[in-house]
Simulated assay, not measured.
Amino acid sequence: MGNPDGLRPLDDSHDTPRRTGSARQAHLIDELRQELEDTNRGLIALHTELENARRAEARLAAIVASSDDAMLSLDSELRVETWNPGARRLLGHTEEQIAGQAVATLMPDAARAEFRTAVEQIRSGGRAESHQCRWHRADGTEVDVAVTVSARRDADGALVGYCATARDITHQLAAQAELASARADREVMAERDRIARDLHDMVIQRVFGAGLALQSTAARLHGPDADRMHTVIDELDATIRELRTTIFDLHQPAQKAASLRAQVLDEAAAAQPRLGFAPAVEFEGPVDASLPDATAAHLLAVLREALSNAARHAQASAVTVFVRADAELLLEITDDGRGIDPAVTRSSGLTNLRRRAEKLGGTFAVGRAPAGGTRLRWRIPLAGARSAATT
C-alpha cells in the first residue's frame, strides 16, 4: 500500500552522532563541575588550615610577647636573632641593642661553659637539660636564671639555630635558702635541747652533789678553813645559777641580734641583781657599725664573765663598763672593790677571756685600777677582728 499521507517514513540514523556528542559534553561538564567542587573543598580546607596555623602562630607570638621569661632565638653561630619583651625586662637590653650579638656576651665564664655544653648535646642529637647559672644585666649586675636550650630545625629537619629561655629564679633561690635555714635552725634547736638536758641531768646534779658534800665537811671546820669552804660553796651555788640561766637560753629560739649597744646595756642590767647595783656603761666611737657579729659575740661573752667575777669576788659598790671602737676595740671593766686576788687571775674563766682576745689578734690584761679596785682590759684590732670573723 502506498503512504496515504504521501509522507516519507522517519529515519533517526542521522541524529545519533549529535546525541552522542551532547552526552559526552554533559559528562565532561559533570566531571569539570566535580573537579571544581573538589578543588573548592580543597581550597576551603587549605584556608582553614592556614587560618588555624595563623591563629596558632598569633597565640604563640602573644605568649612569647607577654611572658616574663627571657626568650631568645639564635642562629647556628649562637648570635641573637630575636629578643622578646621579657628578655628586655629581665636583662635590660632592647632587641635593637642585642640583635646580632653573641649570646655569650650575656654570661660570665661559668655560665658560658654550661651553655656550650647544652649546645653540644643538641648538636650531637641529644636533649639539653635545664641548668641554673647567672647572666649579666645591662647595668652590670647579675641575675640568677634557669636556662633551657632547644633546637630550631627547618622543614627537612636540619638544625638551623637554637632557642634559649632564661627564667628569673631569684625568689625561688631565696625561698630555698629560707627553707634550708629553717631546717638548720630546727637541727640547732634540737642539738641545743640535747645539750640543755645533759647540763641539767648531769652537770648540775654533779655540782649540786659536790656542794652538799662540801657543806657537810664545812660543818666540821672552824676559822679560816670554814670561811674558805663556804666561799667555795658560794661559788658552786653561783655556778649552778649560771648553768640554769644557760639552760634557759639554750631553750630559746635564736633571735635577730639587737644593736651591740643595746646588748651591752642588757648584759649590764642583767648583772644588777648579783652586784646589788646597776653598772655604769659608757660608749665611744662607732660601736655598732664597726664590729662583725662574731666579734660582738666574743665581746658580750667577755663582758658577761667579767661582771660575774666582779659580783663574786670584788665586793664593789660601783662598776663601770667602757666600750670604745676606733682602730681597735676596747672593752674595759673597772670596779672599786678589794682588788684582784692572785688566785683569781689564774682562774679558768680569765684564761678563757685571754684566749678569746688572742684568737682575734688582741690582748687581755687584768690588774689593780689606779684608784683601787680592779681594772680588766680586753682589746683587739678591728681589722684583725674582721679577718678572723671571715675565716
Results as ranks from 00 to 15, higher is better:
31 E>Q: 14
31 E>Y: 00
32 L>M: 11
33 R>L: 07
35 E>H: 08
36 L>Y: 06
37 E>T: 08
38 D>G: 05
40 N>S: 13
41 R>L: 14
43 L>P: 01
43 L>W: 05
45 A>H: 02
46 L>C: 04
48 T>F: 04
49 E>H: 07
49 E>G: 11
52 N>K: 10
54 R>I: 00
55 R>I: 11
57 E>N: 12
59 R>V: 14
60 L>I: 02
60 L>W: 13
61 A>D: 11
61 A>T: 06
61 A>H: 10
61 A>W: 02
62 A>M: 07
62 A>K: 04
62 A>G: 12
64 V>M: 14
64 V>L: 14
66 S>Y: 01
67 S>M: 06
67 S>K: 02
69 D>Q: 09
70 A>N: 02
71 M>K: 00
71 M>N: 00
72 L>S: 02
72 L>G: 02
73 S>I: 04
75 D>H: 10
75 D>C: 09
76 S>I: 15
77 E>F: 08
77 E>Q: 08
78 L>K: 00
79 R>C: 14
80 V>D: 03
80 V>S: 02
81 E>W: 04
81 E>K: 09
83 W>Q: 06
83 W>C: 08
85 P>M: 10
86 G>Q: 04
86 G>E: 04
86 G>L: 07
87 A>H: 01
89 R>G: 03
90 L>K: 05
91 L>W: 01
92 G>K: 04
92 G>T: 05
93 H>R: 14
94 T>Q: 09
96 E>L: 14
96 E>P: 04
97 Q>V: 05
98 I>Y: 13
100 G>H: 07
103 V>A: 09
104 A>K: 05
105 T>P: 00
107 M>D: 08
107 M>K: 12
108 P>R: 13
108 P>S: 12
